[in-house]
Design a protein around this nucleic acid. Structure first.
Lengths: 232, 232
DNA sequence: ATTACATTCAATAATTTTGTTGAATGAATA
DNA sequence: TATTCATTCAACAAAATTATTGAATGTAAT
């Protein structure tokens, strides 16, 4: 193989990996899988895709080496294939935020409509938690909380928030977090809490970013292939 | 706009940016633009694309905000739109190297055929240069050397290497570098130099990575919009 | 064994991406 | 002003991607 052919194959293969990333549903799936490993049905439900369709997208991701699978009884668990996959997803996210006009316009419009939405960074949150000044709630679905959550955070799935709002402490600021900066569950939660008279803010990014940066996490159920320690 | 519609638009737009990246020619163009800004004709020549085709690919990149343009007389100079674009390209490169079987196989095959190819990292090179133990040559086309090169490196375009080999010092190790880890010009140069009896190695990555990490660079001609300092 | 259920596969039509060709535009030069 | 040259545009055919549907596979429970 001459150098030109080699180079062509290399870029061809590299573009295949990128093509696997270049679909809105698959990006949403990756963002979900950054929370942990899940069976096809759960992924389909969360992304509002028909199961067969979700399965096909997952297989595209698998063929490119971006996710790996593990059978657990009837269920096929999908998870990110490695740290680099999450890193790349973060890079793409940031790229979109900074370089693309449509995306920054979308975000600005959204943020302006709810201009009272206070956000705090992971580092700030980490600092505040050590001083016990705040009450941190995880508003993702319970399945995701069980797979792993910020240490000392309590699960208040966004759906159940209104039923359980009376359990929240009224003397502390509430910080809600969800999957990541593209996930709106924490925004909805904060909007609701503020309406109800709480002092509330959202974590700027989300669980995946928190865990990837090596901050303290915990999990309730030991999941499949019990991951004893978390990624650093 | 409800949250579901918003989310859908966001992922839609994000996937558009990713689609712009998911073509082998466009990736090769980005790798080239990481060296500096160039007119369409040069980009077309280096990537061996018909000019009209290169132009269309460049416009896809531009529409997604990945590159920007600047007219200079007859020429339209294209350049990366910002640091995040290069960061993302690096993340994708690394992702391909680590997660995709075809790519790792391709690279291993290539490396094995030339098993005597010694590589050194940017940090090692930086260290060695300060002690003047080595002679660093830039084997990219002269146009790219002029836009910016590793400080104290001398231009020996790969094409002209055989004519000018007698100018090289025989008492020092030669280190050749080119555009980046996917560029084969340095490999070819090292192979040739070793055959001719020199002690030679290639820089593991390339100029773009060196410059992005803030190491010392220089440029000969003041190019369009003379960039006084380089990206840190 | 039979049934239930999670997932995958196969086939199709609709849409999008791609490369090619030749013409059109825009800026410098004669 | 006419000419040259770099770049872009427009239009087409070929190829790839996508969503949908219903059937097929594989595992666990009855």
């Amino acid at each position: 193989m001459d150098t030109r052919t080699f180079k062509k194959s290399l870029y061809q293969e590299l573009s295949q990996v990128t093509k696997a990333l270049s679909n809105p549903h698959r990006l949403e799936i990756l963002d979900l899988l950054a929370q942990g490993s899940f069976p096809v049905a759960y992924i389909a439900e969360q992304t509002k895709l028909p199961v067969a369709n979700a399965s096909q997208h997952l297989q595209v991701l698998k063929k490119s080496g971006l996710v790996k699978t593990q059978r657990e009884g009837k269920y096929m668990y999908y998870e990110l294939a490695g740290q680099h996959v999450f890193d790349t997803w973060c890079a793409l996210r940031k790229l979109g935020f900074t370089q693309n006009e449509e995306i920054s316009k979308l975000l600005n419009d959204y943020r302006n409509r709810r201009n009272s939405l206070k956000t705090i960074s992971s580092d700030e949150l980490n600092e505040m938690m050590s001083r016990q000044e705040i009450y941190v709630i995880d508003v993702r679905p319970e399945e995701e909380y069980e797979k792993g959550h910020i240490e000392d955070a309590v699960s208040y799935p966004q759906q159940e928030l209104s039923e359980r709002i009376k359990d929240l402490p009224e003397d502390r600021e509430i910080v809600a977090y969800c999957r990541g900066p593209l996930c709106l569950m924490a925004d909805e939660a904060v909007k609701y809490l503020q309406k109800e008279g709480f002092e509330a803010a959202r974590l700027e990014d989300g669980y995946a970013d928190w865990a990837a940066s090596g901050k303290a996490v915990a999990n309730t159920k030991e999941t499949n292939e019990q991951k004893s320690t978390n990624k650093a």
